[in-house]
Design a binder for these strands. Structure first.
Lengths: 179, 179
DNA sequence: CCATAACGATCAAAGCTTTGATTACTCAGG
DNA sequence: CCTGAGTAATCAAAGCTTTGATCGTTATGG
C-alpha cells in the first residue's frame, strides 16, 4: 500500500489537506470535515492555478496578476470609470487607484476626467495597452486550456455548474462584499 | 425575460464572466471559451470565499489570512522548520520569514534555532497562539459550513473530486511550482 | 582535509492590499 | 442660494508578496 497515514514529516502541499482533515476531526469532533476539505481544496487549486498563470504567462510579459485583471476589464468594456473597473475586477477603489499609477507609468492605461462628473476618472487602454492585453490573453487562454484539458467536456461543465451554485448560494450573498 | 445580453453598463461582478466569455469569443474566435469560463469562475468564487473568511472571521480576531495559514499549519503539525511551514502553507520562505516577524511580535509564534542544523529555524505556537488558532478555526469552520451548505452532500463530493482531479492534472504538474 | 557547491534564513527593493482619513465635487432640502 | 449629506478618487500607514542578493552553515568530491 502506498497510502499510509503520513506523519508530519512526509507531508507535501497536496497531502496536507487529508492530514489536516483527519487531525482536526479527532481534535475537534464538532467540525464539519467535508466543508473543511472543500474549502482547503478549492483554495489550494486556485492558488496553484493563479501562481502558474502569473509566473508563466503574465510576469514574463511585464504584467502583474492584478494588472492583467484591470487591463482585461478595460479591454472588454472599453473606457470606463475607475469605480466600475473596481467593481468588475473585484478590487477596492483604492487598490485600482494605486495599481493604475503603475499601469499609467508603463504606458498601458490612461486617465482622464469624466465630462458628466468631475469627481470621476475615466480609464482607457492606450494602443500599447490594447496590444499587450491582446497577446497576453492569447497566451493566458492557452495555459487555461492546459489546465482545463485535464477534465472531460462533461466534467468541466459539471465543475462550472457547481462553482456557480456555490457563488450564488446564501453564504456568498450574506458575505460582507467589497464588490 | 430577465436575461438580456447585458451591455457594459449593467454588469456586476457575477455577470461579468458571461459577458467576458461572449465578447472574447467574437473577438478572438480561436480561444477556448469553456476553459475561460472555468478559470474565471474558479477565481471569482475563491476570491469571494477568501475575502469573506478573512473579513468575517480572521481580521476581527486579529489575524490576517496568511497569518491564519501559518498558525493553522503549526497547530496541526507541531513545531516545525520554517522551510517546511513554507512548503505546507504554500508560501515562499521569504514570505514566511517576514510574516513570522509579525506573528512573533504579536506573541503567537516563537522562533528557535534547530539543534540538528544551525541554519534552520524551528517555529512553534506559543500558548496564546494555540488558544487563538483553536478559537479562530472553530469560527472559520462555521463559516465554511455556511458556504458548503449551499450544495448537497453528493454535490460537495463531486466538486471536491473534480478539484482534486484538476490539482493532480498535467498542467498542475508542469506548473512552475513554488511549493 | 579542504575547496566548492548547495542550502536555510534573512534582507532589500518594488509592488499590491487593506482600512481609514482627506479632498473635491454633486445633489437635494430648506 | 447655500448648507449639509453623500460620493469619487486619492493619500497614508501598515502589512504581505515577489525576486534576487547576502551571509552563515552543511555536505560533498577530489
Amino acid at each position: 500500500m502506498t497510502a499510509e497515514p503520513a506523519g508530519p514529516d512526509e507531508l507535501d502541499y497536496l497531502s496536507f489537506v487529508e492530514y489536516a482533515v483527519k487531525k482536526t476531526s479527532t481534535r475537534l469532533p464538532a467540525i464539519d470535515a467535508e466543508a473543511m476539505r472543500l474549502v482547503l481544496t478549492l483554495h489550494r487549486v486556485t492558488s496553484a492555478l493563479v501562481y502558474d498563470l502569473e509566473s508563466a504567462v503574465h510576469r514574463p510579459r511585464g504584467l502583474s496578476w492584478p494588472g492583467f485583471r484591470v487591463l482585461f476589464v478595460l479591454w472588454l468594456t472599453g473606457p470606463m470609470e475607475s469605480k466600475r473597473v473596481a467593481e468588475l475586477s473585484g478590487m477596492s477603489r483604492a487598490a485600482v487607484s494605486a495599481l493604475v499609477n503603475t499601469l499609467e507609468r508603463d504606458g498601458l492605461v490612461s486617465r482622464r476626467q469624466a465630462d458628466h462628473d468631475r469627481r470621476a476618472v475615466l480609464l482607457s487602454l492606450t494602443d500599447a495597452g490594447r496590444e499587450t492585453i491582446t497577446n497576453d490573453y492569447r497566451a493566458h487562454n492557452e495555459r487555461e486550456q492546459a489546465w482545463a484539458g485535464t477534465l472531460s467536456e462533461a466534467e468541466r461543465r459539471t465543475l462550472i455548474g457547481l462553482l456557480e451554485k456555490l457563488m450564488a448560494g446564501s453564504a456568498a450573498a450574506e458575505a460582507k462584499r467589497r464588490f
